[in-house]
Design a protein around this nucleic acid. Sequence first.
DNA 1: ATCCGTTCGTGAATTATTTCACTAACTGCG
DNA 2: CGCAGTTAGTGAAATAATTCACGAACGGAT
Lengths: 219, 219
Amino acid sequence: MSHISEPTVRRLSNYYRVLEEVAAEGKRMISSQLLAEREGITSAQVRKDLSAFGSFGRRGLGYHVEHLRDEIRALLGLDRRWKACIVGAGHIGSALVSYRGFADQGFDVIAVFDADQDRVGRTLEGLVVRHISQLGPKEGFEIGVIATPVRAAQEVADALVAAGVQGILNFAPRKLKVPASITLRTVDMTMEFESLSYALTHTSDSGPRRRRSAPRRRA
Amino acid sequence: MSHISEPTVRRLSNYYRVLEEVAAEGKRMISSQLLAEREGITSAQVRKDLSAFGSFGRRGLGYHVEHLRDEIRALLGLDRRWKACIVGAGHIGSALVSYRGFADQGFDVIAVFDADQDRVGRTLEGLVVRHISQLGPKEGFEIGVIATPVRAAQEVADALVAAGVQGILNFAPRKLKVPASITLRTVDMTMEFESLSYALTHTSDSGPRRRRSAPRRRA
DNA sequence: ATCCGTTCGTGAATTATTTCACTAACTGCG
DNA sequence: CGCAGTTAGTGAAATAATTCACGAACGGAT
């Protein structure tokens, strides 16, 4: 388990979800082959990923579904809960507060902040929106979620770091600067839109429209 | 421009945003070095990415900010508009309808569907939520956005394909099966949560808690 | 006009990731 | 028990992505 690559962790996440489904279907064992088919990858990839953490399967039989699921849950750190706050009570922030997936994965949202006085005082899912100036280290937030407009994102990140969070989940489409000791993950929808736009532009029947750009000479 | 890798396209997206900022700051030229610093990558990476599409810079000077921005905009297919519909008028769907980023990147949301009769008929940003059964090929949707619970996602994907969309943007945390001719991009928040959880678990002061799993012998 | 400092574009080298292909472990059957 | 069929685990090979490092092009100073 020397070093685990980011792609491996992401796939672990996928395996976990497949295993939950398969467990719900009542299957006891699953082979790397079947697991791989559900994900559209190769069985060797599955075995390689899992073997980076230990030896969870049995030759000739496959993996015990519930056992592997629990192992991965532990590996991902999903067997504990995290105290989280959300900054930004706009559309995305509101959606996140209500999002069940958060709680399901062990994130307890215990506060919501916003800079806009019009939003402060409103209630979201039983939480009163508080002014951003109240964000501090007192409440022991472990994770901060940034759901603000992009222009405020860096400032909020700094405030979260000052408040002592260990990790930040950023929904603003911008690379943020945080100390190396803080873990940052960015969910960049914009990038996905653009990646989709690129793919559509370059695979559609009309074909890629290569615009020749004349070599620029002086102004 | 033989083949462009997915990571390259994603970085292109980032460069585009940096260039918009830099243009707003009034700078005329930017070097690969400066562009790279903003993204936290190497200058060689920037040059390599861009050179896959053409020769946009000038030696000794760098890249002309507005020119490069416009080139990338065209490369990403952002110089046209796409007719999109959103399926799912819950928290995430509602947030997406209101999300300015969509319109900014050229996605015109012209319809919202939902399976829940309680939501049908409501108005979101001037659009009346319609029943999913009305989703069909008549309106010429080019892109479909899935913002439903995970259990409905595959069914909705099939319906979108039947309605003739070319691309699907999926916010449900599951791998979907679509024909090879359809482009699919998934924004998987759950995976990002879990990746964050993994990182926090394995970098925190307490260190990785390696749970030894005894080799499983027969039941 | 020549030199100097800068910076792009790019083949080569390096590093990372995935896939191959083989061995070992296991079940079940005769 | 021994054999046939299956499947995990894994070093080696192949592929992909990143970084290095150098030649060429450019503006500006002397």
